[in-house]
Design a protein around this nucleic acid. Structure first.
Length: 103
DNA sequence: AAAGTGACCGATT
DNA sequence: GAATCGGCCACTT
């Protein structure tokens, strides 16, 4: 069976190791959907709460969490990342240090 | 049918 | 750094 784009997006996100992050745009490109960062965000927005997908390792290209500051979801994602020893400075992750690059 | 919206991005000014 | 712009596209008004 030819994989759905949604499935390929999940597969890419699954491949992000703990302690690293990726961005919506990078995930889109790796899933074969260049310039479709929004498709990734859309995809994640539809995930059930009990999903095993490491959705928290996906942040935006500025190194920031794409939820309103101090919102419930913002804090949940930040906590999950800090548990993986990812450092925030000014609510921002240093992508030079934490961005996952395959290869 | 048309306009607005959103877990976005890169290039440009 | 900040703001704008066009690209992108499913969904909701």
């Amino acid at each position: 069976m030819k994989p759905t784009y949604q499935e390929r997006i999940w597969q890419v996100i699954h491949a992000i190791p703990a302690g690293k992050v990726s961005t919506y745009g990078a995930v889109a490109t790796m899933a074969g959907l260049p310039r479709q960062a929004r498709a990734v965000g859309r995809c994640l927005s539809q995930l059930p709460g009990d999903s095993k997908i490491p959705w928290h390792r996906v942040i935006n290209a500025q190194g920031k969490i794409s939820f309103p500051l101090e919102s419930e979801r913002f804090c949940r994602q930040k906590n999950l990342l800090e548990e993986e020893l990812i450092i925030f400075s000014n609510n921002r992750v240093n992508l030079k240090q934490f961005l996952w690059r395959p290869g």
